[in-house]
Amino acid sequence: MFKKSYFIPVFILFVLAMSCGETPTPKPKAYLRLSYPEAQYSTVNLDVPFTFQKNNFSNHVGLKKMPGLDNYGVNIEYSNLKGTIYLTYKSINEDSKNLIEYIKDAQNFTQKHTIKADEIAEQVYINNERKVYGMFYEVGGNAASQSQFYVTDSVKHFLTGSLYFYAKPNYDSIFPAAKYLEKDIKHIMETVNWK
């Protein structure tokens, strides 16, 4: 009887001692810490009606003539990031009637991502000095393209761009690369010069 009376208090003290400690706190979301080189830009002057600056970290720029008068596709590949920025240039008719169609197509293309996107943030871009006006779209979530834009001079030139990765969209996995390339896309918008 003497042994049993000590067992219960010792057991209770043991349980209390084990339960003491810091109160658990929830941890914030974590992302992979991937480091990319600081962006160094150079001007790309292809046989197209515009110039722009690209990040030297990209390893290939491809150009192809598309159907239609003065329509071009430019691909800026980042094989280390398994991604490509696709640029599409279209000329505007003299009466500017196709400009509205081009803008609607660019906006509808972005809105198609609402099925998988968590959000689509829009940023207006205006540069009166270079006559470059447009919109940048940041697409959050597991959408196929995380960044898109269009710019125009409203008279002769119209350029769209979008970012795609060569992988199934998983926003958590591609987030660091998407943010890095988002800066490159904005830099392309900011450095477009019409010829």
Rank of each mutant, 00 (worst) to 15 (best):
F109R: 15
F158K: 08
F149R: 14
S162W: 05
G161Y: 06
D153N: 15
Y137L: 02
K82M: 12
Y171K: 03
N142G: 09
H157Y: 13
K183P: 05
V124F: 03
Y171C: 03
K168M: 12
K131V: 01
I115T: 08
N127A: 04
E122G: 02
K116Y: 01
L181G: 07
R130M: 04
E101D: 10
D184W: 06
Y166H: 03
T114S: 13
Y164N: 00
K183Q: 12
K97T: 13
T160I: 07
F158D: 01
L181K: 11
G161V: 02
T152Y: 14
Y150C: 09
P169D: 01
E119F: 09
N93E: 11
T160N: 06
A143W: 11
K186L: 09
Y171F: 12
L163H: 15
G83W: 01
I92G: 11
A121C: 02
S96T: 14
N80Y: 09
N108S: 06
A106T: 03
E129R: 05
L181T: 11
P176K: 14
T84D: 07
G83P: 01
K183T: 10
V132C: 07
D153E: 09
G134V: 02
A121V: 06
K116Q: 05
L163V: 13
S147I: 14
A144H: 03
S154P: 00
A178S: 15
K168N: 09
F109H: 13
G161K: 00
A178P: 09
R130T: 04
L181N: 08
H157P: 05
V155L: 10
K104V: 10
L159S: 12
I120L: 07
Y89H: 15
L87P: 02
Y133N: 02
F109E: 14
Y125T: 02
N127G: 04
F165D: 03
S154T: 09
K82S: 12
K104S: 07
I174T: 11
I85Q: 13
